[in-house]
Computed example of a mutant assay.
Amino acid sequence: MRAGSAGKGFTVVADEFRNLARKSVDVERILLSSLKKQYKWLSRALKLLISLHS
């Protein structure tokens, strides 16, 4: 009986680990998208400042 309980516990932990891994990938995609947008915005702002200074 104990091995069965341990097996169930392991399954629960493994499922949670998979769920966290999926969420981590989702968060990574969101952060990467946000960083790309910020980079584009900063790049445009820098170009504008350089053109105004010239």
Results as ranks from 00 to 15, higher is better:
1 M>P: 10
1 M>N: 09
1 M>W: 04
1 M>L: 07
2 R>M: 12
2 R>G: 09
2 R>D: 15
3 A>V: 08
3 A>F: 07
4 G>M: 10
4 G>L: 11
4 G>P: 02
5 S>A: 09
5 S>Y: 08
6 A>H: 10
6 A>V: 08
6 A>C: 01
6 A>G: 00
6 A>P: 00
6 A>D: 10
7 G>N: 07
7 G>Q: 05
7 G>S: 07
7 G>R: 04
8 K>Y: 00
8 K>R: 08
8 K>M: 06
8 K>D: 12
9 G>M: 00
9 G>Y: 00
9 G>E: 00
9 G>K: 00
9 G>V: 00
10 F>N: 14
11 T>F: 07
11 T>M: 13
11 T>G: 05
11 T>W: 05
11 T>I: 07
12 V>L: 08
12 V>F: 07
12 V>E: 08
13 V>E: 14
13 V>C: 07
13 V>N: 12
13 V>P: 04
13 V>F: 09
14 A>C: 06
14 A>E: 14
15 D>A: 13
15 D>E: 11
15 D>K: 06
16 E>Y: 03
16 E>V: 03
17 F>I: 11
18 R>N: 12
18 R>M: 09
19 N>S: 12
19 N>C: 06
20 L>W: 09
20 L>D: 13
20 L>E: 15
20 L>G: 06
21 A>S: 12
22 R>W: 04
22 R>D: 14
22 R>L: 04
22 R>N: 12
23 K>Q: 15
23 K>L: 13
25 V>N: 12
25 V>S: 13
26 D>H: 12
26 D>A: 15
27 V>Y: 14
28 E>D: 15
29 R>M: 09
30 I>Q: 15
31 L>K: 11
31 L>V: 15
31 L>W: 06
31 L>M: 15
32 L>R: 09
32 L>F: 06
32 L>C: 03
32 L>G: 01
33 S>K: 12
33 S>R: 11
33 S>G: 08
34 S>L: 13
35 L>W: 07
35 L>T: 10
35 L>K: 13
36 K>Y: 03
39 Y>A: 11
39 Y>H: 12
40 K>T: 05
41 W>V: 09
41 W>T: 11
42 L>P: 01
42 L>M: 12
43 S>G: 10
43 S>W: 08
44 R>C: 02
44 R>A: 05
44 R>N: 10
44 R>Y: 02
44 R>V: 01
45 A>R: 06
46 L>P: 05
46 L>V: 12
47 K>N: 10
49 L>S: 04
50 I>Y: 01
50 I>N: 02
50 I>L: 05
51 S>P: 01
52 L>C: 00
52 L>Y: 00
53 H>E: 10
